[in-house]
Computed example of a mutant assay.
Amino acid sequence: MSEHTPTIEMRNVSKHFGSVIALSEISMEVHAGEVMCLLGDNGAGKSTLIKTLSGVYRPTEGELLLEGKPVRFKSPAYALDAGIATVYQDLAMIPLMSITRNFFMGREPTVGWGPFKRIDWKHADRVAKQEMAKIGIDVRDPGQPVGTLSGGERQCVAIARAVYFGAKVLILDEPTSALGVKQASVVLRYIAKARADGLAVIFITHNVHHAYPVADAFTLLKRGTSLGTFRKEAISREEVLNMMAGGAEMESLDAELAEFQRSDQEGKAKRGGNTASLPGDAQQAYVAGDH
């Protein structure tokens, strides 16, 4: 693979569910050491796109390429084996299980052979603690339930797990949507670290303020179609916001709100004018609400 070959690429990918067109001719490419932010409002097609990338859905039309080679994944397990790791909003973690168990779920290190093979929990605990320390999270006891961690720390466990097991492409589904400012900053910092480590990162969000600081490029989706891909140096934060909101739609909304305000003011003036011709007692009753 040459340095100019994208790690992952979509070429005119469409996904249909019967007569419903969820995605229409989406093209996108992400290179190693780059963060591509996939932006769009609810219903834009972000979830369908990442499920198509991660092997949950097969594209109806178009093709996926991994390191320049066409791929068709039979299931998410095949995509994971190929190096595409997806961290969903629900994190696929079990809160009552330990950090270590969640970190190695399904891939536990073993010692021994044959009927004497067993899980090497000492090694697993040591690795989980070391990997969390690399991202600045000091875990005193990797045996503690993962549910005792903050939302941002749980996101980092999921991301660190994907990186440790050799992901080439890291897909993050709204990782900061339910987090406070401090927790979100922890996740954004680790996204930047994953980029520095040479991963191709796809960051799905509808929050431009979280996306803009870490992004290298933006792909904007609207109702299953792409509005285009833009390099960060070619587009400002305000332009991204405007495109997401829909400039024409916002202008139309502003006009409608101005008309409502004008009509309301005219109505108040008309009601106020009518009270001038009433007797004094009647005016007081009107003001008091007896009308």
Rank of each mutant, 00 (worst) to 15 (best):
T5L: 05
N12G: 11
S14D: 08
G18Y: 10
V20I: 13
S27Y: 03
E29G: 09
A32H: 02
A32K: 10
A32P: 01
G40K: 04
G40S: 07
N42G: 12
A44V: 06
T48N: 08
I50N: 00
R58N: 13
T60K: 08
G62P: 03
E63M: 11
V71D: 01
F73D: 06
F73P: 01
S75H: 03
P76L: 09
P76M: 09
D81L: 11
D81S: 15
A82V: 05
A82S: 14
G83K: 09
T86G: 00
T86E: 00
V87C: 10
L91A: 13
L96Q: 15
S98Y: 00
G106K: 11
R107N: 07
E108R: 14
V111R: 15
G114S: 06
P115R: 08
P115I: 08
K117L: 04
R118H: 11
D120R: 13
D120N: 15
W121K: 10
W121N: 13
H123K: 15
H123M: 14
A124S: 10
D125P: 03
M132Q: 06
I135W: 06
V146C: 01
V146F: 00
G147A: 02
T148V: 10
L149M: 05
S150H: 07
G152D: 07
R154F: 08
C156M: 13
A158E: 10
R161L: 07
A167D: 02
A167Q: 08
L172T: 02
A178I: 09
A178L: 05
A178K: 05
V181F: 12
L188G: 03
Y190R: 09
D197L: 13
G198V: 12
G198C: 01
Y212I: 14
Y212R: 10
F218G: 11
F218C: 11
L220W: 00
L220T: 08
S226T: 14
T229W: 00
R231T: 12
E233Q: 14
A234T: 15
E238N: 11
E238L: 04
L241R: 02
N242C: 06
N242F: 00
M243L: 14
A245D: 02
G246M: 06
G247W: 03
E249R: 13
A255T: 13
E256C: 02
E259I: 07
E266T: 11
G267A: 15
A269E: 15
R271E: 14
A276P: 01
P279L: 08
A282H: 12
D290K: 13
D290G: 07
H291V: 15
